[in-house]
Design a protein around this nucleic acid. Structure first.
Lengths: 138, 138
DNA sequence: CTTGACCTTCACACATGTGTGAGGGTTCGA
DNA sequence: TCGAACCCTCACACATGTGTGAAGGTCAAG
């Protein structure tokens, strides 16, 4: 497929797809006329990049960890230099930290939301169907 | 305490502390000479801001959710407008998504690392003490 | 009183992800 | 053959978080 279709299928602007390529995250090959040509696998790949980007990782890091994330665990290990393994460990730990932090704060928001609907009776939002109020608060 | 101490205690540059204030994330009061004056609570507060920032939330969102995250669940609910509750729900869901994504990818990295050390015997890094290799690979 | 360590505001600078548009080719159907 | 709908590269622009430094005020110790 060409860039327009990939763009549509990943909800990612053409501009960004070219940017990701420039950053070495994806490598499209070219049709004789110069157009980029992508195959199916790029859809998942781009989605994964978006996810990692959204999770706060910079392209520089994504470029390094992406090859290790191929779904069929390629038993053929690429050039895993010690520096790269160190980066991987470090990034893994950083992600674990992030997960902890996000979880803690997400739960705090959740608690707040629960408290608000228990207290004020909610606002008709999508969380209004949470079942019976705790006895102590009714 | 003044900005220098808060900076040291939170490993955050003075510049950023002023920036967070400008963004409405913290509100220091001023000594007669114009110096910012912070109390203990700001240490945690700043650390929390850093965490949320690192987790990928922009200051604009942090400003909204921070008041809901005060540790002693202040049963006194601030001006929780419906728009704000909607933001909160949306952001909570977004965080849940991020957590899912980060977890998935973190685990993938972890698996890769495990596979590498099982395969190549590791590189002497901090994960080398993971115990016996899986029987099938030794 | 001076020096040094603090503090203030202001402003320019930079990296990163992303938008936008100019200037110009290719392809395909009417 | 024309127009629409693609594609290309290049480049400037913007928001956000962050660094850095100038020009100057405050304060305590020597």
């Amino acid at each position: 497929m060409r860039i327009g279709e990939l763009s549509r299928r990943t909800s990612t602007s053409r501009r960004l797809l070219r940017y990701y390529e420039e950053q070495g995250l994806i490598a499209a090959d070219r049709a004789p006329n110069g157009y980029r040509e992508y195959d199916e696998r790029f859809v998942d790949r781009v989605l994964q990049i978006r996810g990692l980007l959204d999770a706060g990782l910079p392209t520089r890091i994504i470029r390094q960890i992406l090859p290790c994330l191929d779904k069929p665990r390629t038993i053929y290990f690429p050039d895993a230099t010690p520096e790269m393994l160190a980066t991987l460990r470090h990034e893994r730990d950083r992600m674990t930290e992030r997960i902890r932090f996000l979880t803690r704060n997400r739960d705090a928001i959740d608690d707040y939301l629960d408290a608000v609907i228990a207290y004020g009776g909610g606002d008709g939002g999508p969380d209004s169907d949470v079942g019976p109020r705790p006895a102590a608060l009714t």
